[in-house]
Every structure is written in structure tokens, then in C-alpha cells.
Design a protein around this nucleic acid. Structure first.
Lengths: 338, 338
DNA sequence: GTAATTAACAAAAACGTTTTTCATAGGACA
DNA sequence: TGTCCTATGAAAAACGTTTTTGTTAATTAC
């Protein structure tokens, strides 16, 4: 079977506990003994059994990731980036990532089970919607957790998110700076999602800050429908005072906006500029290539895992709910070129 | 602290072992006692500690996923699908997914550590390249593992992969059936990757089966470069006996092929048809929309996890190396419309 | 009416670590 | 010479389960 601490002890001619002391650097072990021990470890390829270690230390060195209903469109193509970021933070600190999946739709027991079974030392909650119950129980028992891009009472717990509001503000401002006054806006999805709300709010704020009135029909509500964006583009362009720029809530929406605009005889970017969210391969390879606000997915993963690990290791009090908002970056491409 | 089996025992007025028996359904526990026990469990929200359970049962109920150097382009946008598939298989059988990350480039110790630390009951190996050492040690110790889309000596271990060769064959045949005789082919990346080799081979086979000679300059080697596909399209089209159809090794390559073709004055699909691999949002929203061979990413995740779990649970002998090749599906869109 | 069987539960050992406590041998010191 | 310290290491307890073995009382068989 697998090699245990006793095998190493026998090999090094020493008691089991001494192996443990040597490995954890805690007590006094003579240098000569240490040398023998590490040689034995190397020879036998010994690694402490995680279950046994976890049992006595009450620590698994896993960070839990609860994936609920995976969002239909938003995170999908970018999840790898997020996980990569988490992986970077985790492996630096010697943690693994334990993913717990939802068993049935609307069943959230997988979240609390991680805590109850003690299969991880903390949790990253990611997905679209979550009921109040899991939050409450985790908070009550002071089990470390971090929200990733999730809506919740601000200040009640730590969370990491892209600064959607600022991104929309910056995007609108970018278009305003290019001389546009009539700017259409399409949300990435229904206003049930707070990413949609935040983006809309940022857009409104920018318009207002620069003294521009927003016509209510300059605002369209996008969806996950594959053709979302076409109708909205049409509405923005086929009117007396047509929009000269459009801020599209998501990459596929931007693609549809451009397609429909071209069909209607408007050139992008000369007649109408289009700026998108969610930088992906789609925005890079489209013709014209699409300018986009890049969400820092990898960094979001990294920061959420780092924050969680700091909470786990007690470097951060549980009370100071840390809200991290990460800035987005504008990637200018052809669709907004002068 | 967390609630233990002893708390439940006290609550139910019974010994700890009886709780265990009741939960695992193994021994005879009186129905009345069972009822009291399950009420106590419910009341206290008890779940067995995974470390303790794992220690005595020598089983973690985790399936390990070792992500090495994550491929630059191929799996990226589709990883979520793969993980979703794994999640489905795992959660059905009450497993969690434990992801172990590479600490440094070219360092593969994270693979063997999962086995040595016994933090999972088996491993799914996914990525691009892996040295011989990890395979050998895992095989030697009969630690269950499954290769996901990986090159290795056939028959030496179980693996799951998309049937790239057949996909390319079917794709070529699809174009041949539409009357094309001069069909260009672009690999998704360098021939170091066996997915590229398999696809090329399938293409050659189809051409040969239908009595069509392959001109060597109908074959282009694609890359992860964002503009990959443009040069190749040019080469295929600007010659006496120009190609009338192109089989593009990847979605971005297909997009570039179409872009360049149009720039050269060829209409897609009337002058040249384009069929792509790797169905993604890009292929759906492009204009014209791009026909593609859809890789069954979710199913690959599902099958690899299912296979691994069967190995773990001893339902499958370790010796019968199971090679699962999953068929791809042609999604016809505008770029190959008659 | 007693022996054998069975049903229901408890006691205790085991899993592989870590950690607290204990033991021994030298050496320093008086 | 005896006491005290220190360096080094071992013994033993603990972590929370599962599982093997024991124990008791009730039931069945003769």
C-alpha cells in the first residue's frame, strides 16, 4: 500500500513523531538525524496522508469552490481564466481547489455540505443567484467564504467583483470623448442580474456627469438569446436623432449590433461606433474587430482565492468584510477607431 | 465547533457506532432507533467529517483533475463544458472534483502528489504534454487514472478523446458530398499535437477513399497566432486550380479564412465553402455564420469522470484499458449552405 | 425448562498523522 | 558527588470516523 510515516521512521531508524517534527520544522531534531530523515523521505517518496493530517490539524488545505447554476452566458467562456487565477493563488500557498457541484437545480445543499463535511477550509461562492440560507449559516458559524461576482448586502461579507459600474462609466466617457452625444446602451441581460444594473448605472452617471440627457429609448435590455442586440440596434439607428455610438452589454450582443447596423447601411465605425464588454476571441476576430472593456477574470480568480486564504489563515479578521472591486480595461480596436 | 458523531449519539441516546451503522445501512438497527437517529442528524445538521471518514475507509470520494500547462487555445473556451460534464458524473456518484495545479512550468510533481498524499481516489490527466514518469509511477502502483485528450501509447491506459480523425473524415466527406473536389485543409496547430495529426489523417483518408488526389499545398499548418488562417486561405485561393472548399482546423482560423477570402473577392459560401472545428459562440455569431464540427466537450468530461469512477469502484479491471472515442457532430450553418 | 439462536446495541481497535508529555543521556555547576 | 539544565528523541494521547468483536436480552427450538 501507500507509504506511511512509519515506513519512513523504520527506514531512518527513528520514531514516527520525529519524522513529523523534522518535516514541520517545529521541534529540535539533530542535524544528522534530519539528514537521514529527509533522505528516507526522498527514497520512499513519502507525502503525509491528507486525511490523517486533516483530521488532527482540523485543516484540509483545500479551498472550496461552489458552482451553482452556472451562468448561461456571462462567465462561461471565461471560467478557465478565473480558475487559472484561483489556481495560481492556491498553489502558491499549497492549497488545492475542491469543486462541489449542485446535485439538482435549485438545490443548494452542496454549499453547506462543504462546511459540514469539512472538506475544505473555506468557500468561494460563484454563480448567479443564491438563497439567503447558505449565507446565514456560513456567517453564523464563521466559516470563511468569499463571494465572486455575486449580489448581497454590501458589507455583510467579503466579495470580489469586476467594477461593472466604473467600466460602463469609462466606456461611455470614452465614447463621449470621441465627440458622441447620442449613445445607446444595451444591458448584457435582464436587470435581475446586478452586473446589468451596475453597468446601466455607470452609463447613466457618465451621461449625466457630462451634461447629456439620456432618452429612455436609448436603453435596451439585452438577453442570452443568440440574436440579442439586433432589434435594439435597429431601434437606436432608425430614428430622427439616431445614436452615433452604442455601448453593447456583451460580446455576442456587440456582434449582432454590428451585423444589423451594417445590414441597415451604417458603416462601423464611421457611421456608428460600437464598444463592447467581455473581451473574448469573438471580439478579436470579428470584422471589424470589436473594441471591448476587458474584465479581469484571471485577477478576479486570483484575488478571491488570495482573500479567502488570508481569512482561513487568520491574517484577516472575519469582521472586516473586504469588498474588492477590480478595474476593467478598455481594449481599443477597429469598431471605435477614428 | 463542528458537530460530530458523538453529538448525534448523545442527542439520540445511543452509541456512536450505532449512528454510523444507521447511516451506512450496514447492520441491523431497530426501526424506532433509526428514526430517532435520523431526527437527531436532521436536527443537528450532521455530516460525517470527510477527513476522518477518508482515513479509515482509505477513500476520499474526490476525483482528482491535474491541469498541467493549460493548452493555449484549444480547450480554453470549452473547459467549462468539460468541467460541467465531470461535475455531472461526479455529483451523481457523490464525488467532488479536486483540482491540483502545476506549481511551476514543467514541474509535474502536482500529478504524483495527488496519489502520494492520497487526496483523491483517482486522477484525470488533462493538458497538452506530460512526461513518462507520472504515467509509469501511476501504472506501477495501480492508481486509477484516465487520460483526457492526451497522447500516449495506445492500450497502455484508459483514455477519452474526441474522434478527431473521424471528425475530419466526416467533414471532408460532407464537403465532397456537396460536390467539391479541391478541398484545402488547415491544421488547428502544429503537428506536435496529436489532435492536429489525427485531423490531418482523417482528411487524407476521406480524400483517398473518394478517389481524390491531395495536392501537398492544399495543406496548411495552423497556429495559435491570432491571424492564423489568412496566409493559408490566400495560398488555397490564388492559384490556377483554386480550392472550392476549406476545412479549417479551429474556429478562429475559420474566421480568418473567411475574412481573407472575402477580401480577395471570393464570396462565402457561394465561391468557397468553409467548415470549421470547435463550435463556439464565434462560429454562431460570425457573418456568415460558420458551419462547424462540434466536439462533445461536456460528454468528454462526463465520460472521463464516469470511467474513472468505475475504475475506482472496482467495476472495471485496471487492465482493460478502455479507449473511448466520442463522435463529433456537424452543425451546418451559412458558410456551407448551398 | 434449558440450550441455542437471534436481534439490538455497545466497546474497542484501527486508520495515519500531529502534538503534548515524558525519558534519557550528557554536560555544567555547585 | 549530586543536582540541575539542555539537547534529543520516544511514548502516548488525540482527531472523528468505521468496523470487528463483545455483550445482553429476548426469542426460538427441543
Amino acid at each position: 500500500m501507500a507509504v506511511t510515516i512509519k515506513d519512513v521512521a523504520r527506514e531512518a531508524g527513528v520514531a514516527a513523531c520525529t519524522i513529523s517534527f523534522a518535516m514541520n520544522g517545529s521541534a529540535h531534531v539533530a542535524d544528522a538525524t534530519k539528514k537521514r530523515i529527509f533522505e528516507a523521505i526522498e527514497k520512499l517518496n513519502y507525502r503525509p496522508n491528507q486525511s490523517a493530517r486533516g483530521l488532527v490539524k482540523k485543516k484540509t488545505n483545500n479551498i472550496g469552490l461552489a458552482i451553482s447554476e452556472v451562468a448561461e452566458g456571462l462567465e462561461n467562456s471565461l471560467l478557465l481564466e478565473v480558475i487559472k487565477g484561483m489556481g495560481k493563488a492556491a498553489s502558491e500557498k499549497n492549497y488545492d481547489l475542491l469543486i462541489s457541484f449542485q446535485k439538482k437545480k435549485d438545490d443548494e445543499s452542496h454549499i453547506l455540505d462543504v462546511y459540514r463535511k469539512q472538506s475544505a477550509d473555506g468557500l468561494i461562492l460563484m454563480g448567479t443567484k443564491v438563497g439567503e440560507r447558505p449565507y446565514k449559516e456560513l456567517l453564523k458559524h464563521r466559516f470563511p467564504f468569499v463571494l465572486l461576482g455575486r449580489p448581497y448586502k454590501p458589507g455583510a461579507c467579503s466579495s470580489v467583483n469586476a467594477d461593472n459600474s466604473k467600466a460602463a462609466y469609462d466606456g461611455a466617457r470614452y465614447l463621449i470623448d470621441k465627440g458622441h452625444r447620442r449613445i445607446g446602451f444595451i444591458t448584457p441581460c435582464s436587470l435581475d442580474y446586478d452586473a446589468a444594473q451596475d453597468r446601466l448605472e455607470g452609463y447613466r452617471q457618465a451621461m449625466s456627469d457630462f451634461g447629456l440627457d439620456v432618452q429612455e429609448d436609448w436603453i435596451g435590455i439585452g438577453s442570452f438569446d443568440p440574436s440579442s442586440g439586433e432589434k435594439e440596434a435597429e431601434a437606436f439607428l432608425l430614428r430622427e436623432d439616431r445614436c452615433t455610438a452604442i455601448l453593447a452589454g456583451r460580446d455576442t450582443i456587440a456582434a449582432n449590433v454590428i451585423k444589423r447596423s451594417q445590414q441597415l447601411g451604417f458603416k462601423v465605425p464611421s457611421d456608428v461606433m460600437v464598444l463592447s464588454f467581455d473581451d473574448s476571441t469573438l471580439t478579436q476576430t470579428a470584422t471589424p474587430s470589436i473594441s471591448a472593456l476587458r474584465m479581469p477574470m484571471m485577477q478576479m480568480g486570483f484575488e478571491s482565492a488570495s482573500l479567502l486564504i488570508r481569512m482561513i489563515e487568520g491574517e484577516m479578521s472575519f469582521e472586516e468584510a473586504n469588498t474588492i472591486l477590480l478595474p476593467c480595461e478598455i481594449i481599443p480596436r477597429t469598431s471605435t477607431a477614428d
